[in-house]
Design a binder for these strands. Structure first.
Lengths: 240, 240
DNA sequence: CGAAGGATTGATTAGTCTCAACGCAAGTGG
DNA sequence: CCACTTGCGTTGAGACTAATCAATCCTTCG
């Protein structure tokens, strides 16, 4: 398993082991569509997804919902360890999830024990904002078609870096409603747009499996450039 | 002058002075509409806006532009000190700007000298992502009217915390095109929407002056809740 | 006084939403 | 093992928000 924190290029074997140990300390298994943290909660632990998909979202007073990012294996959900605060968003599972919970003191200790791990944490924060900025750009500037294509590209590339793709395929448990809430579109329009992408031979998506037969072409219609993921700081992806 | 870094609630007088000293070391004065950093550049220094307005933006391959945030006095533009990286976005001024440039080594030294300042830096990162998330939500879920209203609320509240409002008024140097690029709308539609807000008595905007005669009502139509700005960690706003 | 950037207006169109219904597959309880 | 439910995907018709294109009007400033 590749974990984002330990995927950071500069870590030693010992540091990786330390991380693994801390991760194993407290693991929960959660059902699908289950709230992990809700807006307004105090954040006490740091969550790391070990397996499955989760999401960060925000809800307006009248119920409208915006998904802000998806989490997959290895993702640290709340890198915010040093400033006490109430959550300004919610986190919930999409599929069943195996989730590591690290009490903040343990996490801080680990950080203080190793400057490299501290740097890895900064790197994660960096990528987190960068992704959020890309999503803002996507929703603000890209068309429906491009937005969905972009989402597919991002998730595919991220899954690939953690070894969760098989050739041009990967598990993709999002419903069309999830995609709608992530892209700021309606579920109906997402449906029609995906059909169009199918007709164009860019996407196969059914039974929670996504196949991207021509990733390069998809990236180009999505105006996708992976640079915002800052993969240059990551260790080589595991060979599956 | 209130600076975000030194606005963090827990700092001592000595720490504040340290920050002020570092800030004064290298100050540049830039004209309006001037690029400070461009996408693809290496980031070498940390920028802090001392005076004036600036913006962070991203440009798609075909030229479409999305403004990602606005910077006002006190804002740290690139809190990313510990991970070397190339910029995935650009920063430019809107008005003439007085800008502090802190070489990364100096900045790191300051951080290492004081855990409180380090914490302040984490807090800034936290608020930066939180704002970005709110913008994603805004563009994804709010109507044109609500988006613009929300932007007004956010900027007004942020300006107020740094003492840059006078009663219900503040300087507001954004053109309607700027607002359009920030909200993912066209300039024409922004114009019409602002006219509507004027008719509704919620906004007066002319000659780069913004007046919000009924902030509470504006906040409520914008579904604005200041919690994402995490002002609870900030020192009391200066009394003007 | 002229130029330039910004704001405003009008007419038209495109993209996306809304509402509503229907289909299909998988799971559940009797 | 079948009837029912439930969640998700698909389709259609029509409405509406916001985009586009193109002028025109201000205002500021050299």
């Amino acid at each position: 398993m590749s974990l984002h924190l330990s995927a950071f290029g500069k870590l030693s074997e010992a540091e990786r082991n330390l991380i693994e140990t801390v991760l194993k300390k407290r693991v929960r298994v959660l059902p699908a569509r289950y709230d992990v943290v809700r807006e307004g909660d105090e954040s006490r632990v740091v969550h790391v997804v070990l397996d499955g998909w989760a999401q960060r979202y925000k809800q307006l007073a009248d119920g409208r919902r915006q998904i802000l990012t998806f989490f997959v294996a290895g993702d640290l959900c709340d890198p915010n360890v040093f400033v006490p605060r109430t959550m300004d968003h919610s986190i919930s599972t999409i599929t069943p999830v195996r989730l590591a919970e690290i009490p903040k003191p343990d996490f801080r200790e680990m950080i203080q024990a190793s400057p490299n791990i501290a740097q890895a944490l900064w790197w994660i924060s960096l990528v987190t904002v960068a992704i959020q900025r890309e999503w803002t750009t996507s929703i603000g500037q890209r068309t429906a078609y491009e937005r969905i294509a972009h989402l597919f590209c991002e998730m595919f590339v991220r899954l690939r870096t953690v070894g969760l793709t098989q050739g041009a395929a990967c598990d993709f448990p999002l419903t069309q409603s999830d995609i709608a809430e992530a892209t700021g579109l309606t579920q109906v329009h997402v449906n029609r747009t995906i059909q169009e992408m199918r007709r164009d031979g860019l996407v196969e998506l059914r039974h929670r499996q996504l196949v991207l037969p021509d990733l390069d072409r998809l990236m180009s219609v999505a105006l996708f450039s992976a640079s915002y993921l800052h993969l240059d700081h990551i260790d080589k992806p595991m060979l599956a």
